[in-house]
Amino acid sequence: MTQGVTKINLEMLKKLLIFSVIMFGFGYALVPMYEKFCEVTGINNLLQPDVVDKNIKVDMTRTIAIELDANVRGLPWQFKPLQSNVKIHPGESLEVMYEISNVSDQEISGQAIPSYSPRFLEKYMKKFECFCFTKQVLKPGETRQMPVKFVIDPQIPVDVNTVTISYTFFALQPGK
């Protein structure tokens, strides 16, 4: 073995180490990549109001049945939609109401996370107003009715005629 071999070896060691550090970073890069992917395919939820094209056309030939759903995780709250399902024409804007009430004797804050089925509904569901855009703080015993205003983009694939919109309230740790 000559010294030359060792040098080459150290060279290669360096390269491979850098490569594994990059791959470690890649693991983290998968997080935004996944979010980006879900955004593009419309799987994930964005907690911001959508901007909607003003002259969006209402497609009266189609009707989509929307089921509304509500869940609470780890909160002494009651949460339900005031109507369990609605029908909508794509392009038409609609308002639905949800109701939460804090049945405990403490002030509590929670954050609602939306979820859709089918998952690509996110791409076509445009919300102007939603209680999920901000956290909700409820006083002891308080009940609140909250609207969701949205429109479904007429671009939605024609074979979709039943969808579900679901919200889940999670407790927010104090200080968040």
């Binding site: 490569f19 550090v21 791959m23 970073g25 890649f26 693991g27 983290y28 998968l30 997080v31």
Partner: peptide
């Protein structure tokens, strides 16, 4: 191994 073990390390770190 050098391709995926670092990714595992990243996952468990998260």
């Amino acid at each position: 191994l050098v391709l995926v073990m670092p990714v595992l390390a990243g996952t468990v770190t998260m």
